[in-house]
Design a protein around this nucleic acid. Structure first.
Lengths: 199, 199
DNA sequence: TTCCATTATTGCCCTCAGTGCCAATATGGT
DNA sequence: ACCATATTGGCACTGAGGGCAATAATGGAA
């Protein structure tokens, strides 16, 4: 039986072996034992293949945000939810790293990701808007959505480059780096350094 | 004589008339009186046509950052330079809005933009790294680069939706929104609203 | 002015992603 | 076994983009 999981697995193998750009949709289809045309019924585009359970995860992110207690500040609620969104089962860490490495190091996928990220940002923006009695289209919620994504991506990028780091730790570090940057309004102490690696 | 400016002008006209996706590279080439193959010598891809002087602007951004006095905080230096980068001559505002509307409302271009934005982020990150004696690849500078871009894009998005707003004003508002978000760590006052429109 | 060496322009052909359309095939219920 | 329905697959087409080689400018040097 043909499943998304099967196609994805085969595709990842080919991407690893040959690179994303050098792998044709036809090769994936052949390896999966289905027709090219059928593969396009499973995935709207080649770029969509490596995204796994992203849409489902988005729903969990929205849910997690809604379950945050009201006495936590919006900033903390967002930060905690972003960390929860990016929590991965220890057994799945290697596969997750593989996925993210592909997504973040392949220009075509990096570009395509922006479209997926739009939905992610919208989830954050909706929550922030709700908490402040605003529209999700207002400047403030949109800004926070974009910034939260920026922080998450910065953490991911670092995580992919250094096998030793922990993702939750890096996420905290990006939030801390931002605080540090903004708090540093007056005197600038050039000898200041980033805090140590998380966990 | 064929120039980038001419091709761009013709392309924009066709994009306005027919939409970006419905306009083929061949149509642009024909209208510009050059061969399809030649157009691809002027622009590496159709997606690159609407970007105008972006690369040159990047150099100006880097220069502006380097010219910031050392007694201004990094945060302010970045904020001011981002504003300077996005300053447009009043006479060119309409064309700029046209360009940005196309870039930000067309999915294909929205995706492609990420690749251009990578260079933008790198300029910011390099500056932040320099000021703090870090590597441009460190977490902190990269984070600030990503956040600065997030703020700029949030401002642009709003600017495109409301003809009345001023871009510098919106940029300040996004920076303010972020401050507000992060300062609001303890009590949350749901009746709080965004500050008034800039200028 | 003429010739030569670049450099720019173009044509041709190829690959590959993605889509529309319709035929064939499986599948589940009766 | 039979039919209605959903899935799969085949075919042909468009459009972006690249490799390559032929053909035009073009800007000096003689």
């Amino acid at each position: 039986m043909t499943t998304h999981a099967l196609i994805e697995e085969i595709a990842f193998r080919l991407f690893d072996e040959q690179g994303f750009d050098n792998t044709t949709v036809e090769q994936i289809a052949d390896a999966a034992g289905i027709a090219r045309r059928t593969l396009f019924r499973y995935y709207p585009s080649k770029n969509d293949i490596p995204w796994g359970q992203f849409d489902e995860s988005l729903r969990l992110l929205a849910q997690h945000l809604r379950e945050m207690p009201a006495d936590v500040s919006t900033a903390v609620a967002v930060q905690e939810s972003v960390k929860a969104f990016n929590h991965v089962d220890p057994a799945a860490v290697e596969q997750h790293r593989r996925r993210m490495r592909l997504l973040m190091n392949t220009p075509a996928l990096q570009a395509h990701a922006t479209l997926r990220h739009g939905a992610w940002r919208a989830v954050i923006a909706s929550y922030v808007a709700e908490r402040h009695g605003m529209s999700p289209d207002d400047l403030h919620p949109r800004t926070i959505g974009r910034v939260a994504l920026a922080l998450a991506l910065a953490a991911y990028q670092q995580w992919l480059e250094d096998e030793q780091t922990s993702l939750p730790g890096l996420l905290d570090e990006t939030f801390a780096a931002l605080h540090h940057h903004l708090d540093d309004q007056r005197a600038v102490t050039p000898e200041r350094r980033a805090v140590g690696k998380g966990q």
